[in-house]
Write a protein that binds this DNA or RNA. Structure first.
Lengths: 237, 237
DNA sequence: ACCGCACTACGTACGGTGTACGTAACTACG
DNA sequence: CGTAGTTACGTACACCGTACGTAGTGCGGT
């Protein structure tokens, strides 16, 4: 019988190999790597059960022995790239450490632009997510206060990073499989926005775009956002 | 010929009625309302072109006269519920006003739990989104500083609200169309998490869960997050 | 007034998706 | 050594977005 999907389960609680039967031809790492490769090169929508099975070189339904539901495949992918986080010995300066974490996460998402889309629905605590969380908590040891507040800080920081990178990548990812370019798409949207602003119905929006019509420095915006969030949690300030 | 989809476009730039031909049987508002109704009652995944057409009482392909791509249907939905924002005369206290905005957005998302999933991909400035933005900027008039910073505040607040509500609703929405309950799903995940923590590999995570094993007061967490973000932008503090 | 064309309406069809189910081969445990 | 549980995988189903073709409709320009 194929993998049990008809009951709630966590993929990580399933043993990767379980005694009986022929030894599995692929490891979870193999499968995750294949899926990540496809997503990186062809976008997240190209990651279908059939496509991943083909990439591995096995039949479609064989994949269901390893991954009972597609959702689990997504968890595998998220965990695999979470493993790319390089963790370090906490420096003692929690602000510096958290900034470094945030930048690393941002880099990760730029390397794997599909990751933000997987972050929101995924609720689980995968092995590498746990390692990452534990590392963040270790970095926050110097910060006084209850553990709960630290978790809130981590969640907030992750949320901010995800939100900002999503914005950075939105158009780029959207136009991936479309027959027109990101520039064309942007041009059309900006033209529409300007036509709306030109009606005079939105004076403050107009003022905003008059103020700085050039392209926004997203890097600087990101940096400011981080600083402000950390400030909100900093007892020194 | 069916609606042109083979070039970049913004649905809002398309005139709803354009002289020639029979008068359209449905308005954009009708279509959006039908889609929103389906999403509210059966979840976002139930919103297919066929399903919406059926709800309207027309053939599937007729819908493409109004909505060239499914993505545009999503924009219609997001705009329709954005119209539920009730805007008020700014009070002069920008912090109070922004708190009120944030709570209203949160309520909106609780009323339409599929909204967060639509927020990230949607890049556009729909009519009601523009009204909402303009209102937020008006509320921020008393705040000194460049318009750009105000936009950053609005973006940040929206990001935070979306992130937090996503977390609140994650399991609920995930288990919508699944044959088991939210409680069962949660129980399985918590059991797994505890088994991982019991290994002792994650001492700080363990400490966190020892600290407060009861259910978290999500409302209070949300409130604290808002306060901290506003603090980060408040020159008075 | 009338012609033509842009529009509405919609059935059919194509290529894709996730995955339930059945069958055959294989291996470790009782 | 049997047998239960596993792997492997082909077939099939229901559903998706949507390209395309055809028929009917009513406004705009002449």
């Amino acid at each position: 019988m194929a993998g049990r999907a008809a009951e709630p389960h966590v993929i990580w609680a399933r043993p990767e190999r379980s005694g009986r039967g022929p030894r599995p031809a692929y490891s979870r790492a193999d499968i995750a790597a294949a899926a990540v490769r496809i997503a990186d090169e062809e976008g997240l929508d190209a990651v279908s059960m059939r496509r991943v099975a083909a990439e591995l070189g096995c039949g479609t339904m064989s994949l269901y022995n390893y991954v009972p539901r597609k959702e689990d495949l997504h968890e595998l992918m998220a965990d695999a790239v979470a493993g790319e986080h390089e963790l370090w010995e906490p420096s003692g300066d929690w602000r510096a450490d958290m900034l470094r974490v945030a930048h690393q996460t941002r880099d990760l998402m730029h390397r794997h632009p599909w990751l933000p889309r997987l972050m929101s629905p995924v609720y689980g605590f995968s092995p590498n997510a746990l390692r990452y969380l534990e590392h963040c908590l270790a970095c926050l040891d110097p910060l006084p206060g209850p553990q709960g507040a630290k978790m809130e800080l981590i969640a907030m920081l992750n949320g901010i990073v995800t939100t900002y990178v999503s914005n950075e990548l939105a158009t780029a990812e959207r136009t991936r499989s479309l027959p027109w370019s990101q520039e064309q798409e942007n041009a059309v949207r900006i033209a529409y926005l300007q036509s709306r602003i030109a009606t005079g119905e939105y004076p403050r929006m107009a003022a905003t775009f008059m103020e700085d019509p050039g392209p926004i420095d997203l890097e600087a915006v990101f940096e400011r956002a981080l600083t402000r969030v950390l400030d909100g949690f900093d007892p020194q300030r």
